[in-house]
């Protein structure tokens, strides 16, 4: 009577688990590819419709016209009219979001106690979670009437109010990403500065901020991209009046607001209006792409590594 060895008694069905392993890996791999497919899909659909657009409207007129009247009988397609409005509202927003966001980040990571942080950070998250349509409501019906008392000649729809509130909307982006960067600066650098006799403010300005620079710049560039692509606040509060101006008191139409205006009009597919929003979308996408590349280059070039 020979003893039965372990290997003979325990024979799990490996083939089944090997098969399911392969199937799972394949399915989940396909899921992961969807994010690449999204990017490709965005590029392809924008390029496809934009090429059709430029077959009807010469690219020279698109870049040089000083009027934007695609819905008129005698249409003009000067994209810089829309770009000027996007530029104007974004600059106003960034003038609010960058200094205030950066100082918030400094306060949270360098000055606030653990207790304070525990209340402030969720509050900032709520601020980040407010839908932009709500900010639009606030800009149009609360901020604009107040500003009209102070600033004579301010139109009901104006770039100033939209820009200011957009600044508040993107403030949490700057604050939370900059804070991560500042928080990651090793404590020893600060100790070194204190040992040399620097005050806290001098330490922050001369040691901590330069060390966190790449992260801060990345957060600022993301904020610029958010401001350029922001839609509802500018649509609601800055109006639908395409004109080439940098006067913040006036009503203007940004690139995003134009896309909304045409979409609401239910433009039939394959019409010129339909293609126009893709050409505008392409411009918007190229701007954010360039910003991304600048950010990527800057972070790789200037990242400080502390191990």
């Amino acid at each position: 009577m020979s003893k039965v060895g372990h290997s003979e008694r325990w024979k799990p069905k490996r083939s089944l688990s090997r098969w399911s392993e392969r199937a799972i890996k394949f399915i989940f791999g396909a899921f992961a590819l969807i994010s690449i497919a999204t990017t490709l899909g965005i590029i392809l659909s924008l390029v496809f419709e934009t090429i059709e657009f430029f077959q009807e409207v010469p690219i020279g007129r698109f870049l040089t016209d000083t009027e934007w009247t695609p819905l008129f009988a005698n249409p003009k397609y000067g994209i810089f009219v829309l770009i000027s409005a996007t530029f104007l509202t974004s600059v106003i927003a960034l003038l609010v979001a960058i200094p205030v966001g950066l100082m918030t980040a400094i306060y949270l990571s360098e000055h606030a106690s653990q207790q304070t942080r525990r209340y402030l950070k969720p509050a900032l998250e709520v601020l980040a979670g407010v839908p932009t349509v709500v900010y639009g409501y606030f800009a149009l019906l609360f901020v604009t009437p107040i500003l009209q008392i102070v600033i004579p000649g301010l139109e009901v729809f104006n770039a100033l109010s939209a820009g200011l509130i957009m600044g508040i909307a993107i403030l949490p982006t700057v604050a939370s990403l900059s804070e991560d960067a500042i928080y990651a600066v090793p404590q020893s650098l600060r100790q070194g500065a204190y040992a040399l006799g620097a005050t806290k403010q001098e330490t922050i300005q001369n040691v901590v901020l330069p060390a966190a620079l790449s992260g801060i710049v990345a957060s600022v560039i993301l904020a610029i991209a958010r401001a350029v692509g922001e839609t509802m606040i500018v649509t609601i509060a800055a109006g639908q009046n395409p004109r080439l101006t940098l006067d913040p008191r006036l009503s203007v139409q940004t690139m995003t607001a134009f896309i909304v205006q045409v979409s609401l009009g239910d433009a039939p597919t394959a019409s010129l209006e339909y293609k126009t929003i893709f050409a505008v979308g392409m411009t918007l996408f190229l701007i954010t792409l360039i910003l991304n590349m600048v950010s990527f280059w800057f972070v790789n070039r200037f990242r400080e590594k502390y191990d």
Binding site: A32, T39, S45, V228, S263, T269, T288
Partner: peptide, 26 residues
């Protein structure tokens, strides 16, 4: 590659997703 790609997608305005969907889904 996917990590870089996701970083890029974070900066793409949501209205651009709308245009993609208009072309592909609609």
């Amino acid at each position: 590659v996917i990590e870089v790609n996701i970083g890029n997608l974070a900066a793409v305005p949501s209205i651009i997703y709308g245009l993609l969907a208009l072309h592909v889904f609609v």
